[in-house]
Nucleic acid binder design. Sequence first.
DNA 1: ACTCTACATGAGAATAATTCTCATGTGCAA
DNA 2: TTGCACATGAGAATTATTCTCATGTAGAGT
Lengths: 141, 141
Amino acid sequence: MESEELRNVGLKVTTPRLKILSLLENAKAKHMTAETIYRQLSEGGEVIGLATVYRALAQFEAAGLITRHQFEGGQTVFELERGPHHDHIVCARCGRVEEFYDKVIEDRQREIAEKLGFTLSDHALTLYGECSNGTCTAKNG
Amino acid sequence: MESEELRNVGLKVTTPRLKILSLLENAKAKHMTAETIYRQLSEGGEVIGLATVYRALAQFEAAGLITRHQFEGGQTVFELERGPHHDHIVCARCGRVEEFYDKVIEDRQREIAEKLGFTLSDHALTLYGECSNGTCTAKNG
DNA sequence: ACTCTACATGAGAATAATTCTCATGTGCAA
DNA sequence: TTGCACATGAGAATTATTCTCATGTAGAGT
């Protein structure tokens, strides 16, 4: 239940928040911009201000429910924080996003940070390339 | 000579381009925003439009003379493309940026891309943490 | 259930970063 | 030397995001 999720992180359960959260859970695209979320909700007949979408996303992020990614060239996208940590590879041609996890890289990052005297708190790793996908033409998330 | 660099990449040698390029080469900070570049040139008495700074930076980037980084939270920064490839670790507290290169990670990235059917063309890796630096208080680049 | 208050919301204005427009200026090939 | 493709400065325009403010509402305490 989405209301549980909100309560668990100390957020009031409100209609806009529920709608946004469940859109993120049910949408076809895993990575969505604030605009896209706003538009899809509007098309679904909801009356939710764009500012509210931005506010809710910021709160969800602070609460750890979602993650924010800034792929190069594109707008900021948001993704539900489900399952294990992963990084992304983005097709420069069609915009397709694949996820991956690599223990070697993860470990190495921690070692590097330590060696340089940093306490690692986060990281952003995105690979860019062209996918050899036949359907590599249209944009999707 | 900066004029050489410009000619080599097929750009006309103009005063604004030369000024921007040499500022990037001589500035104390290795990573600068377009605004900073604009401001420093203005303070130095140059009359160069901000739009020109953006235009020049975009061209330099396309030509491979500089690289663009989008550290989280911050504005886009530009860095002269000198020496070997490297990635960054940014202190979340004081903004200090350190560079590092790790062959293991680099190799791994290529392998991952290949395994996923992508031809790797680029990547962005930034680590975030807190540096254990005593001087870790003020912002710098 | 009722009420009160702190927090949430929608709408549109405001801001920040970047790009565009356009009239004018200029590097450089011929 | 000159012509013209490309570059420039200034400010307008655009884009993404955040703020403001008057109003609405969730939910703790009764």
